[in-house]
Nucleic acid binder design. Structure first.
Lengths: 151, 151
DNA sequence: GTGAATGCAAAACCTTTGCAACTGG
DNA sequence: CCAGTTGCAAAGGTTTTGCATTCAC
């Protein structure tokens, strides 16, 4: 549901890697394509499984390597919404995350960075990590429809 | 620097555990005392090392058990400011965290929960996890004093 | 007395690392 | 060519689990 981002981001891969001293490899192209195709904040293992569909010989270590390279050159973010496996997201705009405790999905929220404005004196903010936990619209309405049991 | 919290929280341990179906044990008292004494957001292993000073026979598994019990009965929070070990904090007031990338310390910030007000329709917020990364006053002033090398 | 908690060790889980072979620029 | 990358396997750090013993209530 955000095709413009796909189209602007995809061509960047090659040059963005190059300007950061990384090489462009088929594995990195595959992993990045996976990140862009399903923007559901996959874990490294999720990416691994999906990338293997197109490139069966790819290894998990390479997926970690690729994801690390993307984070370092500004093509992806590592997101920590829960303990356990890290998740990755190719949305580089300033945003926050909503974690649905019910369906365990992660949503991007367009929240502004005004949060860091009222810091105590002396602190300098570089990055804001904001995750809101709760229930998403799907799970909220599902909960409302089924008060006790099925009809 | 916050003695009132210590004094109000300590007596709660016994009854708070009981009302949640947990038992009061010497280990839980030790672990909780450790949490209250140094409020520097220790990891489970930090707590383990400190608790062993007073109770040498305590085990790491028990420390994890105690911390889990505290989180479940509302005596402590598990804080994830970085990947790696979880940190624990006995401050149950609504607050956020500041993670200093330089000295790797964690500070409590009195930030309000207004962040969750402008959620898209349908989302219901239950908890807000906010961590601001940057440099703390100590590290900011230290950086300013030493432009290149020592005099 | 009984279920919960402890301590120990082993396992599980996620991630990083070592290294030989390979390859992109 | 050659530093960066790959794939594999092994190791690393954190957390959980199994189980016999002990303990709080």
């Amino acid at each position: 549901m955000n095709q413009t981002t796909d189209q602007t981001a995809e061509p960047l891969l090659n040059e963005r890697l190059a300007t950061s001293g990384f090489r462009f490899t088929p594995q990195r192209q595959s992993v990045y394509a996976v990140l862009l195709s399903e923007r559901d904040h996959p874990t490294a293992e999720d990416v691994f499984i999906r990338a293997k569909r197109e490139m069966p010989e790819i290894s998990l270590a390479t997926v970690y390597n690729c994801l690390e390279a993307f984070v370092k050159c500004g093509l992806a973010r590592q997101v920590t919404v829960e303990r356990g496996a890290a998740r990755f997201c190719p949305n580089m705009r300033e945003h926050s995350h909503f974690y649905c405790d019910v369906c365990v999905r992660v949503f991007d929220l367009p929240l502004s960075g005004e949060v860091a404005r009222d810091l105590p004196p002396g602190f300098r903010a570089v990055r804001v990590d904001l995750t809101i936990h709760g229930s998403c619209p799907d799970c909220e309405s599902a909960a409302g429809l089924t008060p006790a049991g099925e009809p």
